[in-house]
Design a protein around this nucleic acid. Sequence first.
RNA 1: GCUCGAGUGGCGGAAUUGGUAGACGCGCUGGAUUCAAAAUCCAGUUCUUUCGGGAGUGUGGGUUCGAUUCCCACCUCGAGUACCA
Length: 1002
Amino acid sequence: MGKYHFNEIEAKWQKHWAENQTFKAENDSEKPKYYVLDMFPYPSGAGLHVGHPLGYIASDIYARYKRHQGYNVLHPQGYDSFGLPAEQYAIQTGQHPAKTTEENIARYREQLDKIGFSFDWSREVRTSNPEYYKWTQWIFIQLFESWYDKDLNKARSIEELRAIFSSEGNVQVNAVCDEGIQHFTASEWLGFSETEKQEILLKYRLTYLAETEVNWCPQLGTVLANDEIVNGVSERGGYPVVRKKMKQWSMRITAYAQRLLDGLDKIDWPQPLKDSQTNWIGRSKGASVKFSVMSYELGVGETSSHIPHPSSLEIEVFTTRPDTIFGVSFMVLAPEHDLVSKITTAEQKEAVEKYVEATAKRSERERMADVKHITGVFTGAYAEHPFTKEPIPIWIGDYVLAGYGTGAVMSVPCGDQRDYDFAKHFNLPIPNIFKDADISEEAYSDKENTIIANSDFLNGLNYAEANDKIIAALEEKGNGKGKINYRLRDAVFSRQRYWGEPFPIYYKDGMPHIIPTECLPLRLPDVEKYLPTEEGEPPLGRAAKWYWDEKNSEVVSPPLEGQGEDIYPLELNTMPGWAGSSWYFFRYMEPGKSESDSKRDEVFASNEALNYWKNVDLYIGGSEHATGHLLYSRFWVKFMHDRGLVPVDEPFKKLINQGMILGESAFVYLYPSSFGPIIFISEGIYVSGKYIDIIKEIALKVNPKLLITKTDVKIHVDVSFVNTHNELDIEAFKNWRPEYKDAIFILEDGSIYEPNSSPSGRPGGDFKVSREVEKMSKSKYNVVNPDDICNQYGADTLRMYEMFLGPLEQAKPWNTAGITGVHGFLKKLWKLYHSGENESFYVSEEAASKDSLKTLHKTIKKVQEDIENFSFNTSVSSFMIAVNELSAEKCNSREVLEPLAILISPYAPHIAEELWEKLGHLESISTAPFPKFEEKYLVESTKEYPISFNGKMRFTLELPLDISKEEIESAVMAHEKTAQYLEGRTPKKVIIVPGKIVNIVG
RNA sequence: GCUCGAGUGGCGGAAUUGGUAGACGCGCUGGAUUCAAAAUCCAGUUCUUUCGGGAGUGUGGGUUCGAUUCCCACCUCGAGUACCA
C-alpha cells in the first residue's frame, strides 16, 4: 500500500482522463483562452524515441500550468502524415503508404498516451485524410484565384482583376506578377480567346506555373532534395544528378517579402529564429542596372554572325553598390543564364558548353560553399559600360547562381572580394576607384569610410552621395533604377511524388483549370507501383483513372482516341509536405467531427472558432523549421487574412525552440582476422594496445607466420545490449547477427570470453564498449524508447527527467543511467505523504513550521518564474531541494503538502492526481488554482556576507540586513580574519554593496 | 563559404542586473543495514599542494574594486543553407 506503484497510478489516471475528457477545450467559455501547440509530428515507422517528446512535455507543462491559472486551454495534437519516408517504404515493400501511415500513427498514439499528455484528442487532424486535404486543396484554389495588388498591398480575387482588364486593360495594374508581361487595352483583352486570357491570368495568380531549376536524377526518374545528393550523386543508388529546368507550380511568396519582414516585429520569437527569417528574405537596397551586349563591330575580335540583333540584348544586374559602377572591369553570368548560349562566340563555344555541363553536375550548396576553387570561362562577348561606353568582357562562373537576383553580376574587383579573387585568378584588370585605398592585397569593401575616385562625375563623393547621384543618372538614361531586392525566391510547390495532396487541377488546351470546389476532395488515386512512369512522369501517371470529365464533374479513365471531348488530363504532381502544415493550426480550432456542433464538413474552420481562438499563443518546436514551415505558414496566414478567411495575420504569437536530444552510441572494436572468427576487443585493452599481443597468441595456434597489425575498425552496437557501466551483454550481442555467433571476445582483463565462466558471473560482464554522442537514430543503434522508460520508471519520471537534462532549447545527450536520481526524487515525494504507520498515507491538519512554509513559498516563487521563462530544468532542481528540505523537517501538514501537489502536477501529473485524491479531493487536480506566493514567508533579517580581498572571497560573516554601510565596514574591519588576510596592509578602498558583498582592496 | 548557436568538475548541468563558481542530479569513494544482492540511509567528491596556500568557467588580450556574465581577436563543436520532416 505504502509503496509508490507508478505503473498502477499512471494507468489509472490516463484512463480517468480519457473517460472524463478532462482536457477537452471549450469553444464557448467564460474563461480566457490559451492555445498551446506542438509542431506537427511526422509519424515515422521508427516510432518515437526519447528525443521526440521533449517539446511535447514542455508544452504540456505549460498547458497544465495555464489550466491551473484558470485558462480555457486548447492543446491539440495530430499528424503531418503525408511525406517521403512512407513513400520510400512503399516503393521498397509495395505496401500502400496509407496502410503503413495508419500503423505508424497507431504506434505513435500508443506511445504518446503512455506519457500522460493533456491533449484534446477529439480535435485530432491528419494531413493525409481526405476530410482534411479537401481543405488544403480548397486553399490552393483560393491562391489560384488570387493576385497581389501592390497599391493596396494585399491579395485580391482574380475576378476583380478580370474586371479591371475588361474596363481598362493592364497598364495601370500594379501587381506582383511574372516579368515581361505585354501591355494590353480593355478592348484587346476582350478580344483575346479564353485560352489567351488564361495564359495572361496565370502570370498574375498567386500560384502559377513556372520553369524552375531542380536536381534531376535521370536513372531514378525523379527530382532529389539537396540532402538526398551526396557528392554529386543520388544517396539512393549513387546515380548522377544534374540541374534541370522543369515546369512546376510555384507560390508567389515574394509578394509578401516585406510584410513577412515587418511582421517579425510583432511576434515573440527567439531572436536567432527571426534573424534566420530576416536573412532568408534578404532585403537589400541598391540598383538594377542594364548593360547592353555589344555587337562585334564595337568589340574586339572577329565579327560573328550568331548574335541575331547586335546591341539589342541586355544583361540586367542587381547591385547594392551602384556607386562603384566605374570600377566594373568584367561581368559574370551564371552558367545557366538564358543569354549564355546567345552571346557566346564561336571560338569560346566549346569551352563554354563544357563548363555549363560541368556546372550542371554541381549542387547549389556546393557552389556556394566552395570559395577555394575559382573557375569560369570567357564567353567571348562584351557588354557596353553604360557611362564610359568601354567594352566589358562577359564571363560565366559558377559562383554566380541562376536563382539569385538576376543570375548575373557586374564585377567590381576593387570593392568585392569574390570579384577580386576572380580577377586575380584570370588576370583581369582591377581598376581602383577608391581614394587612398590599398587594393594590392585584397578588395576594399568598407563603404562607410570611402571616397569615390576615377569615376567621372562621382569623384570626391562618399558612398551615400555617390549612390543617390548614380541612381539618378541611371534613371535619367533609362538603363537602371533604384531597387529593393529580396533574396527570397518564389516557393516551388510541385513534387513528383505519390504520397501528397493531388492538385485540384486539370489541363485544357495546355492551360490549368481548377476543379469545382464542390467536387473536393480530389482523392489520391491508387497506383500499382509508387515509382515514376517509364516516360519519366510522376507516379500519378500510373493511375488507371486520372482524367477529369468536365461535363459530369468526375474523375474518369483516359479517353479513347477521338472520343471524350470534355475529358482532360489531371495534374500528375502532388503538393509538398508544407502544404498541409501551413494551416493545420486553424483546423484544431474547429471541434472534431465526433462533436455535434462540428462544422468541419462545411468549412476549414468556422468563423466563431477562428474568432474565439485567434492565433496560437505558444508554439513549441525545433529551429530546423525556421525557414520552411514557419515562413510558409506565415505566408499562407497573411494570404488568408487578405482574403478575409481568417481574422489574424500571424499564426504563432510566441514561439520556443526545443533542442535535440542526442544519443550515446556504443561501439565495439573489431579485428577482422583472416585466420578465423572475428575478434572483438574490450575498450580498455584496445586503448592500451595490449590486444595486439593477445591476437598474436590466438593467431599463433593457426599460423605462426601471420602478421598482426593494429585495427581501427569499430562498429555500432545496439545500446540495449549495454548496461550503465558500459558493459556488453556478450550472449545477446552474439545472437544479434549470425556472423558474430562464433566471434572471439577479448575481455577487459585480457582473457578470452568463455560462455558461462565470465569472472563476474553474468554473461559478458567484463567486456566494455566505447561511447560517443551522436544524433539519435535507428541506423546508429542508439535509440532509447520512451515506452521502455515508462514501463521501468514511469511517465512522471520520464517527464521530469527530460526536463531535468538541461535547458529546453539546447541540444543535450540522453543518458539513461541518470534517470535514477529523478525517480528517487519521486519516491521521496511519495514518502513525504506517507509518513503514517507502515508507510500509510498521512497528513496532519496542524499548522506547518516556519521553515516548511519558507520552503514551500520559495519553491512556488521559483517554479512559477521558471515556467514563465521556460526554464524547466531548474524547477526540477527546486522540487528536489524542496522535498529534501521538507523530508528533513519531517513536514506532514496539509497546509504545505496540498499546494505542493498542485505545484508539481504540471510536471508529474499522475502522482499529483493520486496524492490529490488521497488528500480527499473528488475533482481532478488539473484545474485546482495554482498556489499563491507570499513574500512574508521569505523575509530574512540577516545576511551571510561574503568578504572578499581583491575580488577573492575569503570568508563569510553574518550581519543584520538593516545596518548601515559604515556599520558593516566597522564590523568587517574588526573581524580577526580581516587582519589576517590584510597582513598588516592598510586597505586602499572598501567596497560595500549592502545585501550583496564586501570587497576589500589593497 | 555564409548565417545562427554552444564551449563551466569524470558526466548532464546551476549561478536574477557584473557580486560567495560548481546548486541539483548521475557517477565515484568510504561507511551503516543485509547471509548476499537490490533498495534505503549517512559522509566525502573542481584540480593541485610542501596542507600555509595556489590555480580555475575553450584560448589570448582588455574594461572593472570585482568578469562564467561586458568588449576585441581567435580555436573547437553543432544547426540551417530553399524538394528530409
